[in-house]
Simulated assay, not measured.
Amino acid sequence: MPRALARASHAPGGPDLLTIGQVLARLKPEFPDLSNSKLRFLEERQLVTPVRTESGYRKFSAADVERLRFILALQRDHYLPLKVIRQHLDDLDAGRPSTLPTGAAPASMLTGARRVGREDLLAESGATGALLDDAIGASLVPASEFYGDENVQVVSALAELAKSGIEPRHLRAFRAAAEREFGLIESAVGTTARRRDAAGKARVAELAREIAEQLEIVRTSLIRQALGRLDS
């Protein structure tokens, strides 16, 4: 198991332990939406287990910080629900083989958020500038100065699809379908979403990811059923 993801085993009085405020100071530059309540929420879900001082204060080790960075990067860059992330980490903690869900980067790549500029994006994806502009125009990729791994994957896929004559403009319906799915999710979490506290917002985000995961299962099944008609 990567050392950076191991659960910490330091005693409360051990060296190099950080307060929750110090952890926030280290991680917020990468994850601006991170809050004290979000860290507590992750602890409640048993994804990270900081030690406690005799006075009850949380203390985080360097391993805890890397574990948090890994979790937050999976959420932000791959939209994985916490229950999936927790199972993966539980397997790693127990020394069991574990593979991240399809599309997620390996653990070694998630200790920091990778960002590339336009030229690097084109070079890695094999796409042309015109294709990227068309993808941005079709709302398949955001207009941005820098792009993450997910954007690289999407543009790479679009470059491959273009070889079969499928252009970004043909996929505008995907954006419309995504907005409809978001409407379903928003309706499902509506009552909880009205909570204004940070902990409530964290729970809404997690519930939304779990619903999105179930919708993805249904969508994938429908596509496979449709593909089955090619064999009949």
Score class of each variant (00 low, 15 high):
81 P>N: 15
33 D>F: 11
219 R>A: 10
185 I>L: 07
105 A>I: 02
27 L>M: 00
22 Q>G: 09
155 V>S: 01
206 E>S: 08
73 A>I: 02
53 T>H: 05
55 S>A: 14
89 L>W: 02
185 I>S: 08
8 A>T: 10
108 S>R: 11
45 R>N: 13
33 D>I: 08
86 R>C: 03
215 L>Q: 13
85 I>K: 02
12 P>F: 09
167 E>N: 12
34 L>C: 00
66 E>F: 10
187 S>M: 07
12 P>V: 11
180 R>Q: 10
88 H>M: 08
155 V>G: 00
98 S>A: 15
226 A>T: 00
136 I>Q: 14
208 A>I: 12
104 A>E: 00
35 S>T: 13
171 L>Y: 01
134 D>H: 10
107 A>F: 05
77 D>Q: 14
31 F>K: 00
55 S>M: 01
21 G>S: 09
154 V>A: 04
145 E>F: 06
200 G>K: 07
50 P>V: 11
152 V>Q: 05
159 A>K: 03
158 L>C: 07
230 L>W: 11
230 L>I: 04
38 K>D: 12
141 V>K: 06
121 L>R: 04
36 N>Y: 06
195 R>D: 13
8 A>H: 11
138 A>V: 15
59 K>T: 03
73 A>C: 15
137 G>Q: 06
110 L>E: 01
163 K>F: 05
168 P>Q: 07
8 A>L: 06
10 H>Q: 13
147 Y>C: 08
62 A>D: 14
16 D>S: 05
78 H>S: 13
209 R>D: 06
124 E>T: 09
43 E>R: 14
114 R>V: 14
182 F>P: 00
151 N>Q: 05
178 A>N: 08
179 E>V: 13
43 E>W: 02
150 E>Y: 08
129 G>H: 08
181 E>M: 03
145 E>G: 14
127 A>Y: 00
28 K>T: 05
112 G>M: 15
201 K>S: 00
23 V>C: 00
130 A>G: 08
36 N>A: 04
80 L>N: 02
188 A>M: 09
72 L>N: 07
196 R>I: 12
87 Q>L: 14
82 L>T: 01
20 I>N: 04
206 E>K: 09
141 V>P: 02
93 D>A: 13
21 G>A: 10
22 Q>K: 05
211 I>S: 03
192 T>C: 02
25 A>C: 03
16 D>A: 15
154 V>T: 04
224 R>N: 09
191 T>F: 07
158 L>E: 01
162 A>M: 07
165 G>E: 09
124 E>D: 10
185 I>E: 01
19 T>P: 05
155 V>M: 07
113 A>I: 12
218 V>L: 15
